[in-house]
Design a protein around this nucleic acid. Sequence first.
DNA 1: AATGAAAGTGTGTGCGCACACACTAATTTT
DNA 2: AAAATTAGTGTGTGCGCACACACTTTCATT
Lengths: 377, 377
Amino acid sequence: MERTKKITIQDVARYARVSAGTIDRVIHNRGRVSAEKRKKVEEAIKILNFNPNLLARTLALGKSFSVCALIPAAPSPRNYWNMPLQGIKTSAFRYMDFGMRLQYHFYDLFDEFSFMNQAAQILESEPDGVILAPLFLHESKSFTSSLHRKGIPYIFIDADIPDGNSLSYIGPDVQQSACIAGKLMSTILPQKAEILILNMVKGFENASALQRMEKGFRDYFLKSGQQKNKWIHTRTIHSTQKEKVWEELEKFYEKYPGIQGVFVTNSNAFIVAEYHRRNALDIRLIGFDLVHDNIQQLKEGSIDYIISQSPVQQGERAIQTLFEAFIQKKNPEKIQHVPLDIIIQENLEYYIGFNQQYRFKNRKPEETILSNLIITK
Amino acid sequence: MERTKKITIQDVARYARVSAGTIDRVIHNRGRVSAEKRKKVEEAIKILNFNPNLLARTLALGKSFSVCALIPAAPSPRNYWNMPLQGIKTSAFRYMDFGMRLQYHFYDLFDEFSFMNQAAQILESEPDGVILAPLFLHESKSFTSSLHRKGIPYIFIDADIPDGNSLSYIGPDVQQSACIAGKLMSTILPQKAEILILNMVKGFENASALQRMEKGFRDYFLKSGQQKNKWIHTRTIHSTQKEKVWEELEKFYEKYPGIQGVFVTNSNAFIVAEYHRRNALDIRLIGFDLVHDNIQQLKEGSIDYIISQSPVQQGERAIQTLFEAFIQKKNPEKIQHVPLDIIIQENLEYYIGFNQQYRFKNRKPEETILSNLIITK
DNA sequence: AATGAAAGTGTGTGCGCACACACTAATTTT
DNA sequence: AAAATTAGTGTGTGCGCACACACTTTCATT
């Protein structure tokens, strides 16, 4: 714990034989510096390897950055959308003293209007940055173009809308994750098999993601030369309600009784798993995301593989990216893919434990984040 | 970017009708405060929800924390040990302004003496914290007990030596990772099969880890009721030299020609993969860690699965943990398991890409970290 | 009753930086 | 040629905190 010294602006000033003010002008390109001294200063900075102290800078500026997160509401603590939220919360909490202020805006997964509503609120509050999960394609596009017009940077998480204007996309490579699903499916099915790709969406969601998902899955079998042995169907059920889905499944299985494997393209695999279990169907099942019900079904063997797309990390990286952009003036990578984790019964506990660590670290952030906020001007 | 205001020590002082100095005394338990005022202050802190600004505090203290990392040297950039190092570097860089000073001490993976040598140097420099990969059991124990005596906290990464004194262990659950290997192996082998667990160690390494590894692997087959159908051998080759290993392998395969799957318990699976390829042996292979040669062999199909134990993250979390312990006075979790990633040909690219992000973010940290260091007292 | 120590409290300075302001010297304007 | 700009530079203050120090009050000691 010794007292050490980094090069400070004063050291540079002494070395260049000018005052700290001049150094400051050079650093921030504020002009009002003669060419001669500017050169001297730049030299000194280089030679002494001066790096402004981020703490002092932030403290002196005393600015704060408001960040809005626009994500689906998690109706229960077990819901998938709690996980990115956890990541966002913990990370934002960490950067609070740096002036990061976080506001959540939740929308109803099944209600475009709630999305638009919240989006409008965000636009009104004129934040410095936005993190959003663009589940509704059309509405998201409209929202982000408004943000772009206002010069407010935004980050997509979970799903991408490649529009060239977003600060970054943080999430899985959809096509790739589907390809992994294909590989895993092929390891648990016989040579010849009939497979179902099952989409469950309420209605008007980001359809291109579904297409890329399907492509990735089919591509695996194509690339590995199995397409002749695999008969792959695709079905989209426009609901995520248990009864409705079961009904549709019943119809489908009646028509295609030979199905041996199902790939569910979102986090609702457990609904299918339950159906299989109830009807004593021996069908392999692969799905996404470590939500509670999926975990249960994996434990009981009704789901074979779960692919997890680091949801907590997505939230963390989003905040981290904004922090770096605002405070450190970094230009982030346009695309930040997150690890895709393959979960089976045997490693399940460790992923759950890992998430709990996050939950633990994050005991009471929301009060502290918001109650401290007093806007003075 | 508005100007916002958090509760400051002055606000609390006004509220409690005392001076800032008194608040400070209460916060730091420095005594010299009457019971009456102490109570008032504590109340005020609670009511106003005062959280000292970490930036200002760090700035005012001006202390720095020296951290020593004791890990194996990475002879080439492709070496496994570069990955934890990357994580350590980037993370330490991030906390530089908080006073974190990092020093690397590398030891030869095959030379206990170099370990002891470096360890002695560390003890002499009396750092505030130590991160070490305890590959040599005996030497590590001796080193950490010295650290303990001196009151220097230390963190194990990669492998654990449960001694009750370490600040934390950050790494995989060895037994669990082996269990996953078992599961994966069982998906790619026929019902009845003969399997080899292959250890490759130079000599006097942390043997308990090997034992737990073997136990985890065998346990899987036990738990899943396959032990009667699987004949599992264990061999330990006391070398990691290609020729030597090949020689031993040849002998072994001659004796047991029925081997259909090999599980290599460290990052040297590629050596075995090459042997299989050269001799056109159709043997399934599972190993650890995304080192270059393993990646190659996975691409070419000579390795079937690679289990990766988030090496970069290990380094990051280690630094992060020390930061939190020093700056935020947090008590870290004693055991921090990292995610175990299952890598196949199809998701390989994404893990590599992910690592490259780190490498990119980390362009020139070492100069900056060390050259700024001037110890004044 | 005088002295001193100890307990209790407030003030002032510095951490490194950003920025407003004051000041000087060199131009330009009239 | 005097006045008014403007370019170029240094000084001072505050961000929120920790800590040294000065100061006041209390109470034991002689």
